[in-house]
Design a protein around this nucleic acid. Structure first.
Lengths: 192, 192
DNA sequence: ATTATCTATAGATCTATAGATAATGC
DNA sequence: ATTATCTATAGATCTATAGATAATGC
């Protein structure tokens, strides 16, 4: 890696960071190239030197996320998911970016649609594996890992929206732990 | 109600229907007044006679939804929620409109933000009441109705996104019933 | 009279392309 | 030589306002 390409990589990283912020604030459709460029001290045309189209910029943002989510060594363990949610609760900008993109992605012809469709298929399969590793073929509730996985994913996403809209009212990590309890633990024997 | 205002009301209803469709396809930021107008056979300026600004049109769409959700006679019962989800599974356009709007609403200065913030506070409180009516102060899992309510809401929203992105892969009503099982039923005694 | 709708248009944006200039690395 | 960045600009949109005309109801 020459000095030159290292600088390019650095510049691209700056641009991606700025794009992430602007998308969090305005969504992808509302994020103008000029706004992203301004945040890194470039003109809009200067930015287009690094990413030839707006869509290429989005794809790069999404690709970075994918890398970010991949856990070295293979899979998640169930008890680490709670920590992931705690980590997310400290990074509202990232959560907001991807919540906004997910929302937009269900509209027709959105450039992130294929990304999210594939991603959710992968994440459901991966969560099913995590649940199987923890509980075997049946969770305590009787659900199979494949049936429980979409619920696990749905709770994570749904809580993010509620939390973004009312962070003081929704304790996202606590709520997620509650869900894990629901999935795996018996009612406390002394309960009413 | 005079004939005149009845016609006006009809026209407004047509416009709202068209706006719902266009928002489902493009989101609010991507929905142009011209596209909505064209769908009802009006010019963009003709549309603005009925709704003076784009934001006023959005507010009217949201207000209609509120009315639509309100259950006559007060509250939901837990077993009716499953039917609501089944009904939604037959109306992808409406689900898509509100999923797109929810996603956009977390961005800054979005005109639907206050609506969703208030709505979720209300819906959480309402779901807590439903759960209390069904289970009393503790669900079988030991959770209080107030702790379980955000999870119930999160599952409904999260499943909608997964279903919109992959309707063949995600059986939304079934998944929601699974969640109700998780909330309320003991593991089958004969389970492993 | 009032309501509904249209034509014309101002004033902002937005993405992307063309082509020039400055900076960097061999 | 190549890379980074800029100025200039084409070509589409978009929202909203102004003011005219057509249709409707008293």
């Amino acid at each position: 890696m020459t000095t030159r390409s290292a600088r390019t990589a650095e510049r691209r990283a700056e641009i991606l960071r700025a794009a992430l912020e602007v998308i969090a604030e305005r969504g992808y459709r509302g994020a103008s190239l000029a706004a992203v460029a301004e945040r890194v001290g470039l003109t809009q045309q200067g930015l287009l030197h690094h990413f030839p189209t707006k869509e290429a910029l989005l794809v790069a943002v999404l690709a970075e996320r994918d890398q970010w989510d991949a856990v070295p060594g293979g899979g998640w363990r169930l008890d680490l998911l709670g920590q992931l949610v705690e980590y997310n609760a400290m990074r509202p900008a990232i959560v907001q970016t991807f919540s906004a993109l997910l929302g937009e992605s269900v509209t027709e012809g959105h450039p992130a649609r294929a990304f999210f469709t594939e991603r959710y298929a992968t994440v459901r399969a991966s969560m099913a594996q995590v649940l199987r590793a923890e509980y075997g073929e049946r969770l305590p509730s009787g659900l199979t890992p494949e049936r429980a996985a979409p619920l696990l994913v749905a709770v994570m996403d749904g809580l993010q929206y509620q939390w973004l809209l009312a962070p003081e009212s929704v304790d996202m990590p606590e709520a997620f732990r509650d869900f894990l309890t629901l999935l795996g633990e018996e009612p406390s024997p002394g309960g009413n």
